[in-house]
Design a binder for these strands. Sequence first.
DNA 1: CGCATAATACTCATTTCGAGTATATATGTG
DNA 2: CACATATATACTCGAAATGAGTATTATGCG
Lengths: 310, 310
Amino acid sequence: MSKESVSIGLSAAIVAVEGERPSVLVVAHDGAADALPFGPFDPAQQRTLESGLRKWVGEQTRFGLGYTEQLYTFGDKGRHESAAGTRVVSVGYLALTRQGKEAPETEWRGWYHYFPWEDWRDSKPAMIDSTILPALKKFVKDAPNAEAAELRRERVNVCFGEGWDEERVLERYELLYEAGLVEEFWRDSGRTNKGPSLGTPMLYDHRRILATAIARLRGKLKYRPVVFELMAPTFTLLELQRAVEALAGLRLHKQNFRRLVAEQGLVEGTGKFNAPVRGRPAELFRFRRVVLRERPAPGVRLGVRRSKAS
Amino acid sequence: MSKESVSIGLSAAIVAVEGERPSVLVVAHDGAADALPFGPFDPAQQRTLESGLRKWVGEQTRFGLGYTEQLYTFGDKGRHESAAGTRVVSVGYLALTRQGKEAPETEWRGWYHYFPWEDWRDSKPAMIDSTILPALKKFVKDAPNAEAAELRRERVNVCFGEGWDEERVLERYELLYEAGLVEEFWRDSGRTNKGPSLGTPMLYDHRRILATAIARLRGKLKYRPVVFELMAPTFTLLELQRAVEALAGLRLHKQNFRRLVAEQGLVEGTGKFNAPVRGRPAELFRFRRVVLRERPAPGVRLGVRRSKAS
DNA sequence: CGCATAATACTCATTTCGAGTATATATGTG
DNA sequence: CACATATATACTCGAAATGAGTATTATGCG
């Protein structure tokens, strides 16, 4: 067995929501592609991978992390190599925080810059019908044989066909990658893209890690009360709804959303009210930490709405 | 930064179901603890982590893997160290297969040997009330301070309290580990256990990886048709139900289970029937692969039953 | 035939879900 | 102040999903 050294890298998709904008902390040097905060894992100093993560994220970004969750470990050759030629295996994490002032070299960026097709809040993004589906149709036709074409057709249908499943963020990104619709595909294969390039590209496989993070978060929303990690200590129900909508990329039915949240005992009123610009003042609520004890799987069930009316 | 070398290990929880027994492929040397098939990742030879996995699993166990899924990457100090003292970071995988003849050195072992408290099919396992809860009560009392005690109380309640959530396999194992109720805790801390030791221990952190695998599989069952990876090409609905029950560790309501499976279009009848020992013959069904195209998130929803009757 | 046993079909009450209407409380405008 | 507008909150309604059960059908066996 040959002896080639491996090093472990840690990347984190650090997510916050500000009003209606879900954002991710990126390291942006001029000219170079945006990157997720990334650091090496030092086995001599750190007892666990996660403590290593917390340490250098703290150093690099001055952020205290709240909820963190490991996402996936990527070790693909060619996707990420260190200068010395050692193989880098990167472990991706999702971390939730309240948006604060970013440290030097980093900035908050709305995550739909990277995934414009994932935001269905206003309406179905036009690019899906105008660009994505035609290009994917071609991708199906270009399959090497009939069986492969059938497989591709199924994937296209599951990802972008009838019945939008907001959780399939990674599947959609991977499909667009294979179809050559995102810049990373051309960069990784060393060729030049002559077709459309969707969304803002990122360094290495960081957009894939971010896709994994969004997918995981959208799923988790429904059965664990993770949104509250992103909210201020008190908030109105509409603010909470907007945060969930921002993350899920969908509009929710207001009345039903409040019913669900209330029924599940996720929040309690504070008796105080906000001072709205117009309209009736809304009560400020806080998260009821006790539900973690009371209910086996509390989460913000979505209560999606399918019609147009509000 | 000190220079300590790291190596990557790959472990796989290879799962099959035989009748009512969910089982996992283990490497069992006499005397030594059972281990998951485990091998080093050779960065020089392998392009991706998964291809590395497939290669040595094939060599060691002669098994072709079907569905595989990465689970989690563990790097805790002390939980797994190589002879040379290098730090081993292990990437765990879940793989599903149909049970066949095992290769030398490996054998199929029912996974409830390792997690006897997870099988609620007959009834709530007696050990929970007789052993686990009393010991955990003591664990809560032994907390260093009141706040820690409260945290521990919440965890105990979520893991073993009212409302069994069959997916929390990992959380429960970790809690039992910290409370010193599984052998690995004492082995890892170099002390001798004088209290109860629950379930069969495994090498290194393999039981933790297996717990992660079971948790993931139990979750996935409900929204992806993964059970069919474990079934023969044709099967009766009761066989399918028994497989799901075996994995989930719960009994389901027969009539409702068939309604769900049928309504979702997961299976189609073959027109053939089995030859039962007694009773009316059951139709043999096969998995309808097309649902992967038709429905966004097909899965075997459970239809849990809460009463005793069949 | 008359059981026992299992498969399959059908019924029913309750809960959940999506959608919508109604009412309450604020601001701003003429 | 009356009224339009905007937002918050409460309540209603029908359709579908869910949990639980009864009824009927098809076998083998004594």
